[in-house]
Design a protein around this nucleic acid. Structure first.
Length: 227
DNA sequence: AGAACGAATCAGGTTACGTCA
DNA sequence: GCTGACGTAACCTGATTCGTT
């Protein structure tokens, strides 16, 4: 926490959803071809140095679907378990060490997406499976988005509050002007004349109307227009 | 050339474990 | 010791892109 998550201020709440990574990260994809088939990756049960990873797409009829949910999960989750304890009867959630987290964090700061090379390098460096590095980056990006969404939310809230306040104030002002008009007190008459060319109130002696006041010197259609 | 397919990766959401008050 | 809240690793699902056939 407390990293450069809020480096993108502004209200791009919805826009950002589509722009983070999705497209930008495909350039380095698919460099290798079928070195890893799905079977190789997911169903090789401990036959290589890459631990069990039974996690891909149970939508098709794969080995995964042959197990019950929970048993698959346990096997999958436990499969690998990092470099430490590989024994145990149930899933043991790995807790990344401070060093591992720090290195991942540094790497994330550099670039929030992974390419296969970087993934493998980090995995090697940290004694983790590439899949774990991948998951960490996915979760990290999700956290970043969540945090940014919260920031955006706060900004919108504040903006909403100020607009509500302004709206109230304008209503009040309008009522006041209406009442003046009804009571015939036209002392403001001169100050409320609308300029025909710029559609603004041409003079504003009152502070509340000052924002509509256009200095004659900067008026588009010469100084005579608003007199 | 273009359709079909598979692999890789993503976002968004969920689950489950570890930690702490 | 128990419990609920919280953080987060791991997972699921659907979508997208791209290389291969």
């Amino acid at each position: 926490m407390g990293f450069n998550d809020t480096c993108n201020p502004g209200l791009a709440l919805s826009l950002r959803l589509g722009c983070l990574g999705k497209q930008e990260n495909f350039s380095h994809r698919r460099k290798k071809k079928k070195l890893l088939t799905r079977g190789d990756q997911s169903l090789t049960l401990g036959s290589s140095d890459e631990p069990i990873d039974l996690h891909r797409k149970p939508s098709s009829v794969s080995t995964v679907s042959l197990f019950s949910n929970s048993s698959v999960k346990k096997e999958r989750d436990f499969g690998g378990g990092g470099d430490e304890d590989d024994e145990g009867s149930h899933r043991k959630k790995l807790r990344l060490s401070k060093r591992q987290s720090a290195i991942l964090e540094d790497s994330f700061k550099e670039h929030s997406t992974l390419n296969p090379k970087k993934k493998q390098a980090l995995a090697d460096q940290l004694s983790l499976r590439p899949r774990q590095v991948e998951v960490w980056f996915q979760n990290r990006r999700a956290r970043t988005r969540l945090k940014q969404t919260e920031v955006d939310c706060e900004l919108l809230k504040k903006r909403c509050e100020t607009l509500t306040e302004e709206n109230k104030r304008l209503h009040k002002e309008l009522q006041q002007l209406k009442s003046w008009k009804l009571t015939g007190s036209y002392c403001m008459q001169a100050t409320l004349t609308m300029c025909p060319s710029c559609q603004r109130v041409a003079d504003g002696s009152k502070d509340s109307l000052a924002r509509f006041y256009v200095p004659l010197s900067s008026h588009p259609s010469s100084s005579a227009a608003c007199s």
